[in-house]
Design a binder for these strands. Structure first.
Lengths: 208, 208
DNA sequence: ACCGCTCTTGACCATCTGATCAAGAATTAA
DNA sequence: TTAATTCTTGATCAGATGGTCAAGAGCGGT
């Protein structure tokens, strides 16, 4: 077992390397088939390790899953954190929306991983949602609310505005298959989507 | 086996009754745990039938799943079908959005069932998406486009507008857990959501 | 009451899958 | 080199799960 004397969990070169391999493979598999739909064998095969070897690094299937979620959660919220109360509302919101939709484009698997987790009741990250996530959202909702108070944005419930941004942007990752079925796999999908979503939110939120 | 002489598949009273029982239970289970995450036993227990008895009506687990999807697909698209090219654009869109968000409120399980299916690549309804769904969406996108041509709506790519409406409304069913975690289970959630979404789309789309 | 058909079920099976373990190979520090 | 530690794996297990089957119970028309 890789070290457990209570102090420093210092990792071997092989250890960090294989853990990265495993998490990368796990993202592929879990995002495609969900937790129950994925097997340890699939993940092991995908990263070229034997099943017992994989279970040497992560003792249980669930440990891989949780590690993977934690590993990507921070990045996932970065764009929202970056929204600056001192900045111009229109610019800040545009940047946020653009950042979110590009995450959908560049890392759809992470989006689908979360979507699946939440869809099934967020058994692994429920406390995170009620804690850190809620705090961050409340904070940023207050910022947006401030912008609306000063008349620089049309008034809308800021929490629901955030939900709307999340849903529209993540839709292109999570419902990828549906979008492409309806649109017939156009090459410039995401830039068109970005344009439409920005128009909807930004033009819609500009005060008249 | 219940009738199979090639002609009329007329059903017994018990047959229709039990099939309904099964589909109702299956919706509960499949929407909560996904296809792979659900077991035939769970469904059987939930509707008070023995597993072999359930498999007498639906020979394979997948048959239940497919039947369930087909059974709800038609209802699901009804609001979009109802959108009338001859009506007033603002009224038609308002009605559509309102209908969609109320479906999210009244039948979140069906929404999660579809979300799960699509998230996993739509193995069971892929052809439906590329066929009937695409046709319907293309038709209604053309209607919306016509409204925009006549200057009664701000110009936005109509397909992406439809996707935005789908995503924002269904978000409240599919990501229910997240929404409630962030908002702390408020009693009037859906009416607030309805108000915010209507404001966003309708105010945003009114030509200036 | 009888008969054919539908319905129900306990027992059972094959397979899949998460997880364990002991033993051997590779790596590292001295 | 050597010894301790880390890493790897074939074999194996226990439980879960989708699906089958034969036999019996129930129902409906005559």
């Amino acid at each position: 077992m890789p070290h457990s004397d209570g102090t420093a969990p210092r990792k071997t070169r092989i250890q960090t390397q294989n853990e990265e391999l495993i998490l990368a493979a796990a993202l592929e598999v879990f995002s495609a088939y969900g937790f129950r739909g994925s097997t340890v064998d699939q993940i092991a095969t995908k990263c070229g390790l034997s099943k017992p070897n994989l279970l040497y690094y992560f003792r249980r299937k669930e440990d891989i899953y949780v590690a993977l979620l934690e590993h990507t959660l921070t990045d996932w919220l970065e764009p929202l954190r970056a929204m600056d109360a001192e900045g111009d509302p229109i610019v800040e919101l545009s940047n946020y929306i653009t950042a979110k939709i590009r995450m959908s484009r560049d890392n759809p698997k992470a989006s689908r991983l979360f979507a699946n987790e939440i869809l099934h009741g967020a058994p692994a990250i429920g406390t995170f949602l009620k804690g850190p996530l809620k705090e961050l959202v409340d904070e940023k909702a207050a910022v947006i609310s401030g912008w609306m108070d000063s008349g620089r944005l049309t008034r809308i419930d800021p929490h629901h505005l955030i939900f709307s941004i999340w849903s529209t942007t993540q839709h292109y990752a999570d419902f990828d298959v549906q979008v492409n079925a309806v649109l017939g796999n156009p090459p410039d999908l995401m830039s068109k989507a970005e344009e439409a979503i920005l128009t909807l939110f930004i033009e819609g939120l500009k005060p008249r």
